[in-house]
């Protein structure tokens, strides 16, 4: 850990967005969201409703970023097509 000579000036943080390296995925207790791509209509509601930016928006599909997903279940509850289900962590995707 950094000494007082090494910590950045006045405790400023000079690496914007470096929290991205911090894993919040292990906050999920029992369940994780799983997308059924067949059912997905790419409406992007899950993407805009995720508090953690843990739904990655690709060219024409969305994916769950399990490194950050906290398993809140908003995406599954809100998906109008029933394309996202909360499954137990153990279950296969």
């Amino acid at each position: 850990m950094k000494t007082w000579e090494e910590v950045p000036f006045a405790g400023y943080i000079l690496e914007p967005g470096n929290a991205e390296s911090y894993r919040t995925g292990d906050w999920r207790s029992r369940q994780k969201p799983v997308i059924n791509q067949e059912k997905c209509t790419f409406c992007l509601l899950c993407w805009i409703y995720c508090p953690d930016g843990a739904i990655t928006r690709r060219e024409s599909k969305v994916e769950i970023d399990y490194y950050h997903c906290k398993g809140c279940g908003i995406c599954a509850y809100e998906c109008p097509s029933g394309a996202i289900r909360m499954k137990s962590e153990a279950e296969e995707a």
Binding site: S21, T24, R28, Y67, H68, C72
Partner: peptide, 10 residues
């Protein structure tokens, strides 16, 4: 606002 923040789930 990057991922990796510590707000509660949901």
């Amino acid at each position: 606002l990057s991922s990796g923040h510590r707000l509660c789930a949901g």
